[in-house]
Lab assay of single mutants.
Amino acid sequence: EAHFQVQLEQLRSMGFLNREANLQALIATGGDVDAAVEKLRQS
């Protein structure tokens, strides 16, 4: 989780407030914030 701290903060600042969902999306996308946003929008 600490590995994705910067990305988690970016997602939070973009309005994605579900930390667990954000973390799962980042893990699934290897930390790619843009891909994580797409994944979160689809769910």
Rank of each mutant, 00 (worst) to 15 (best):
F4K: 04
L8C: 04
V37M: 09
L40M: 14
S13H: 02
M14H: 06
G30S: 12
R12V: 07
H3N: 14
A28R: 05
Q24Y: 02
Q10R: 08
L40A: 02
E1M: 08
A28H: 06
L8V: 09
L8D: 07
E1D: 05
V37T: 08
G31T: 01
I27V: 12
L26H: 01
A35E: 11
Q5P: 13
L40R: 02
N22V: 04
E9V: 04
S43G: 15
V6W: 03
G30T: 11
E1S: 06
D34K: 11
F4Y: 14
L17G: 10
M14A: 06
L11F: 02
A35D: 13
A36I: 01
V33Q: 05
I27K: 08
Q5E: 13
A28I: 05
L23V: 08
A36K: 00
A21H: 14
R41Q: 15
L40S: 02
R41S: 07
G31C: 03
I27W: 06
R12F: 05
V33C: 12
S13C: 13
E20T: 12
F16V: 01
Q24W: 02
H3Y: 15
I27T: 14
V6T: 09
L40N: 01
H3T: 15
A35L: 11
L40W: 01
E9L: 03
L17C: 15
V33T: 10
G15S: 06
G30H: 08
R19K: 14
G30A: 12
V33Y: 15
E9M: 02
A28G: 11
N22M: 08
E38I: 09
G31F: 02
K39M: 10
N18A: 07
A25L: 05
A21N: 15
G31I: 02
K39I: 06
E9D: 04
V6I: 15
Q7H: 14
M14S: 09
T29H: 11
V33D: 01
N18W: 02
G30D: 09
R12G: 10
D32T: 08
F16C: 14
S43K: 15
Q5Y: 13
E38S: 10
Q42L: 11
D32G: 05
F4G: 01
Q24N: 12
R41T: 12
T29P: 00
A2R: 05
M14T: 08
I27H: 14
G31Q: 02
V37W: 03
L40E: 01
N18P: 01
A28K: 10
L23F: 08
A25S: 09
L26T: 02
